[in-house]
Amino acid sequence: MCGATTGGVSLEGVNVAKESVIQGIVTRDDEPVGNAYVRLLDRTGEFTAEVPTSVTGHFRFFASPGEWTLRTLAPKADPVDRTVVAQQGSVAEVTVAI
């Protein structure tokens, strides 16, 4: 989508100082994937949350500080796992290529 900021949807109205944001984009051959699902797994591998990607391929989680795994599912693709560290007051950006 034209003018989409990094991380996609605006964080306006969200108190980022209090949040531990993990966000990013899912791509296939450098093109955004708008019909993927991103699962957030905690440090024990337990499911914590899941979001579908936006039409621009973006996703976002409000996690707590610590290490997390992002598991991405998409049609006609193998699941992809990526680890990420979230910190309060910052936004962790992740690009997932499937």
């Binding site: 209090k18 905690d42 499911f47 914590t48 899941e50 409000f62 996690a63 707590s64």
Partner: peptide
Amino acid sequence: RSPDEYAGRLMAPAHLPQE
């Protein structure tokens, strides 16, 4: 709920703002 919500480390599912 997720383990972090159970323990009190999160207030809501992690795809939602926490406040």
